[in-house]
């Protein structure tokens, strides 16, 4: 599969490393060059330095050919915007965005974008633990 990962912090880089290990074609985009240091030495995909909020950077990553896009920058709104551009303008079949603010998940579930909220997941995991 051809997969574009936007944001190369801990989550983004772990996902990218694993996909690359599994033999997928991966492109990682981040605006901070230092973040690429999170990638493992075996990572065989491409790195693009730039702001994925600019369509030019997304086209550079050939996003229109991507089968899946994972948007995981540190800014929720930026993730939502990039995810919508990927889904609605470049017709990427599978787009997942990370959101820290779980309130925003509801609104954007109606936009055809899958969202993951680590905040909500942490809360749920905690309750699972204490209820044993």
């Amino acid at each position: 599969m051809y997969i574009v990962i936007i944001g190369c912090d801990r989550v983004g880089s772990l996902v990218a490393n694993r996909l690359s290990n599994e033999g997928h074609n991966v492109v990682v985009i981040d605006n901070d060059e230092a973040s690429f240091e999170n990638l493992s030495s075996e990572f065989s995909g491409f790195r693009i330095l730039g702001d994925a909020g600019e369509v030019e950077i997304l086209t550079q990553a050939k996003i229109e050919e991507a089968e899946a896009v994972f948007v995981t920058t540190r800014k929720d709104n930026l993730n939502l915007m990039i995810a919508q551009v990927a889904r609605n303008i470049f017709d990427v079949p599978c787009v997942v965005a990370r959101l820290f603010d779980p309130k925003r998940e509801e609104i954007f579930s109606t936009f055809g974008i899958k969202t993951i909220s680590p905040t909500r997941m942490a809360v749920e995991e905690f309750f699972k633990e204490i209820k044993g």
Binding site: K75, L80, M81, I82, R104
Partner: peptide, 16 residues
């Protein structure tokens, strides 16, 4: 100054 914030603000105003 952030276009992503403008977009989401407009979409919230519109949809909600």
């Amino acid at each position: 100054p952030a276009d992503e914030d403008n977009l989401i603000a407009c979409q919230v105003a519109d949809r909600i």
